[in-house]
Design a binder for these strands. Structure first.
Lengths: 152, 152
DNA sequence: TTAGATGCAAATAGTTTGCATTTGT
DNA sequence: ACAAATGCAAACTATTTGCATCTAA
């Protein structure tokens, strides 16, 4: 029952001694295709759209496992209710998220090496990675905002 | 029915045109005393211990208000279920999270203004905030790691 | 073959809402 | 005095659990 080619992360999953089940591979695939920014609710919907026989519990269990394996990480940034899961690529991770349309814009440079270094010295920690997210409005949503008004 | 001296943040609350109610002042006080790292559930308990007549709804409403006023911010700690609220000292938010013991170490400087500015120009976006998390081992956990091995 | 994973449905957390009442200014 | 905020309890949403069944290795 071969899925398609296994992603890097799927291999990590297997190497850590867990079974490569249909449910897990599907959940992982959905996360990867999504660009790596999903709430659990969005994930549930998308997984369900792909294969409606996969149960909610398995999605949550996968999310939990992936978190423990550092494949994914929950962040709370603008929904105060549902955590957003972000894919953790290898070294660092940074992008801009449009708070209006949720579009994700990647960028390469983050220039944090210097800061990382300084923090290691000053705080006496050993750092292995980081997550940097900027929040704001993308070009399109800035234009649409001229129509104004959706304050609370 | 004067509470004790008003904190800096309580003043901000008032200045923003909201009433200084008993419930709000109590919630704020509990957060400030706690060192500024609480889940909503912990907050509910502590508020209840101080004054059991304050209802859950008011606690959540305060949390919501404080978040909108940037007095507090929901963030990831290690429960994947309940957001943790941290006090926001100034404008932005950044910290180091120990991947072993989940300890959170705050730091002030992030030097991202320059980058933020550059991205706004280059990507044609309008940025309003950011989250910066470093992951690594705190001093204690580096030492304990000599004893190695506590995989799952 | 068999331990580990699953799907289901019911149980549990966590959060929000409507509304009559109270309170800060 | 009166708009804003509250407390309550019920509604809702999100997540977890127990267990019989299934499946990857």
């Amino acid at each position: 029952m071969a899925h398609q080619a296994l992603s890097q992360r799927a291999l990590r999953l297997r190497d850590s001694g867990h079974k490569l089940t249909h449910a897990r591979l599907t959940v992982l695939d959905v996360i990867e295709r999504s660009g790596g920014h999903l709430t659990s609710t969005e994930l549930l919907e998308k997984v369900n759209a792909v294969d409606s026989t996969i149960g909610r519990a398995s999605v949550f269990r996968s999310l939990d496992l992936f978190t423990r394996l550092s494949i994914v990480r929950p962040t709370y940034i603008d929904s105060s209710v549902t955590p957003t899961y972000v894919l953790l690529p290898d070294g660092h991770h940074h992008h801009v998220i449009c708070t209006s349309c949720s579009r994700v814009i990647e960028f390469d440079e983050c220039g944090l090496q210097a800061l990382e270094h300084e923090l290691e010295q000053r705080l006496n920690v050993r750092l292995t990675g980081h997550l940097l997210e900027f929040y704001g409005l993308c070009a399109d949503c800035q234009n649409n905002t001229q129509r104004d008004n959706d304050e609370d």
